[in-house]
């Protein structure tokens, strides 16, 4: 850009500019091939989660097939010890696990971000209170604490989500607090304060948009962890109850019939693919949102 001083008679700046330029998140940044692969796999699983109830070849709960049938002979993924179709159960598992994992992450983000932002922005006793609670939760190993809470609440899938929520919000609170704390004293926030704007306006308009990126990255990486945690709790008998087609409890059932490899392999692969896919998406998101990866358009900008 050069120093062109236009006469005042020129049309206003709104007249001939194409649309608002967004600085980040253009499709070009998604060039990371793994990110695209991850996004495709995630999308496929999301579609499966939506359409599974309508397209499964068998009722996932019906026990009307020959027991422990190997894949290929009449069924795609074989049948389990109770004569249920493994393929239908794996597809139905997506309907059970993915929405719950998403719910879990969204709730963790909301709780963590709100408490973390309040903590970083208001400081003092608010900060002390929130941070000591996060310390308390984080002092325990995540899975063990979730197990204890889930066991105390009673085995059900919703209680497993609640237990996972209690152990997973503090990381968001910590992250958000750190980001807000840094931005609160930054020159541009101070400048806006000097211009007489209220704290709420500052928080929502000047701080929040600069905090969303890193939280989004953590959240996308965390969906995989959430699926693992929910499956893990179900595997331990603290989550989904039989006969629910949940991946973790399917793997758990497979342990009793170790020779029938297909019982554990396919739900295990389902967990593996979606966890890896969400991690790829998270990594790509992190790269895309990294300010250092931003290219300056119309380069050579000097005074």
């Amino acid at each position: 850009m050069t120093r062109t001083v236009l006469p005042a008679t020129q049309p206003g700046p709104a007249a001939d500019l194409p649309g608002r330029r967004r600085p980040r998140m253009r499709l070009g940044r998604w060039s990371a091939p793994l990110g695209i692969v991850g996004a495709v796999v995630v999308l496929l699983w999301l579609v499966v989660a939506v359409v599974a109830p309508f397209v499964v070849p068998h009722d996932p709960l019906a026990q009307d097939l020959p027991r422990l049938q190997a894949p290929g002979s009449g069924t795609i993924f074989g049948t389990d010890a109770l004569g249920r179709d493994v393929f239908s159960r794996v597809l139905s598992g997506a309907t059970v696990t993915i929405p719950l994992a998403l719910l879990l992450v969204v709730m963790s983000v909301l709780i963590g971000a709100v408490l973390g932002a309040a903590s970083g922005f208001f400081g003092r006793w608010v900060d002390e209170l929130v941070m000591r609670v996060t310390d308390l939760v984080m002092a325990f190993p995540t899975v063990i604490l979730a197990m204890v809470i889930a066991a105390a609440l009673g085995a059900s899938l919703l209680n497993a989500v609640l237990a996972a929520l209690i152990v997973s919000w503090p990381s968001y609170a910590r992250l958000t607090r750190g980001l807000v704390l840094g931005l609160r004293t930054s020159n541009y926030v101070v400048s806006v304060k000097l211009l007489g704007f209220s704290s709420w306006r500052l928080l929502l308009r000047d701080i929040a948009p600069n905090v969303v990126g890193p939280i989004l990255v953590l959240a996308s990486l965390d969906i995989g962890t959430a699926i693992l945690l929910l499956s893990g709790l179900s595997f331990l008998g603290l989550g989904a109850k039989p006969p629910t087609a949940e991946w973790g409890s399917m793997v758990s059932d497979a342990v009793q019939n170790f020779d029938s490899w297909w019982l554990g392999l396919f739900p295990g692969l389902a967990i593996l693919t979606i966890v890896i896919a969400f991690n790829f998406v998270g990594d790509a998101l992190r790269d895309a949102l990294d300010p250092k990866s931003v290219t300056v358009r119309g380069g050579g900008a000097t005074l």
């Binding site: 850009m1 050069t2 120093r3 236009l6 700046p13 608002r20 300010p291 300056v296």
Partner: peptide, 20 residues
Amino acid sequence: MRVGLDPQAVRRYPHEFSGG
């Protein structure tokens, strides 16, 4: 315009400018 910049730059973002 008063600080010697292109008045059409109102829609640009800070990273599109040099330090000065």
